[in-house]
Write a protein that binds this DNA or RNA. Structure first.
Lengths: 156, 156
DNA sequence: GACAGACACTTGATGCTTCAATCATTTTTC
DNA sequence: GAAAAATGATTGAAGCATCAAGTGTCTGTC
């Protein structure tokens, strides 16, 4: 017996679906136009830039960018071809690959950041009360946790 | 001079990006596995099913599903090939195309709905306080509005 | 110390999304 | 009432994401 969504849930859900369908392309579009980067490309560079030694193992970067290892591998290959990122084998274990941000990658990130941050601010935070910023963090965190938990359940 | 995000905004933003990166594939994956439909396919069928006469013009369906006309056109072509949807010229104006849900499309939607709704409930609403449901609707609505407004600005 | 399984990652094929260009129709402007 | 602009929709090419299958490495376990 299906438990359908009530009216409030229905409205909230349609709006959230709207965010996924509209915000994602909007971010990609601005970054693509101004910096020839995908939003996901940007996220990879940003996560590397904040990591110790500007370098992370593939699986750690995948986890920090919320991506599958497969998706990340394709994207890192592309970024490597463009010279924004470099791969090298880990000294610790031969099945581990380390990715690091190159100087060119760092520069590209620094150039792209202001425009991207402005876009995020204007699309998400402009006019959003502080209480809603907190709520957004709480709710989005809740959803991400549930998705991760369900993935573990179905993989088993 | 860039106005960077403060710490609270930063955390909220990373979590929201996580939702877009993880929730969307999770929905696609369940629907694909159980009903051979994309989440966007589902949305199209669902919007048609609720429309008067189970039929809408392309541009109206695009607007209700938050998609570009181009994306919709490709997807409708695919759904039409599979017999879930039919196109016909509008009697009102010759540049308008009407899309309508076929009986097969209706059946497919009815079969897919319970599993999809269960997934949405378990990933989004399970354990989410009613106050947060309202906040989600408000915040997501705020974001969608801003994205739409910015699109209008850049198109001009 | 060999073998089964787990782990880290890569690859190739397929289908989806976007962008830019296009076409036909309708409306506006002069 | 023609020309110009706007609207509604489609198309093809290029780039992305996903899935399933693969490679190589490491870790038990007997």
């Amino acid at each position: 017996m299906t438990r359908w969504l009530d009216e409030d849930e229905q409205r909230a859900w349609l709006r959230l679906a709207g965010v996924m369908l509209k915000l994602s392309p909007a971010l990609d579009s601005q970054l693509q136009r101004d910096s020839d980067l995908t939003h996901f490309d940007y996220l990879c560079l940003a996560m590397l830039s904040e990591a110790e030694g500007r370098s992370l193992r593939m699986s750690e970067l995948a986890s920090r960018t919320n991506a599958s290892l497969s998706r990340l591998s394709h994207v890192v290959s592309k970024l490597e071809r463009r010279g924004l990122v470099a791969r090298c084998p880990s000294p610790e274990s031969r099945r581990v690959t380390l990715v690091s941000l190159t100087d060119d990658g760092w520069e590209r990130l620094v150039e792209a950041a202001p425009g991207h941050v402005e876009t995020v601010r204007s699309l998400v935070f402009e006019g959003l009360p502080a209480a809603d910023v907190a709520a957004l963090e709480r709710i989005a965190g809740h959803i991400v946790e549930h998705v991760e938990a369900s993935r573990l359940r179905t993989v088993e």
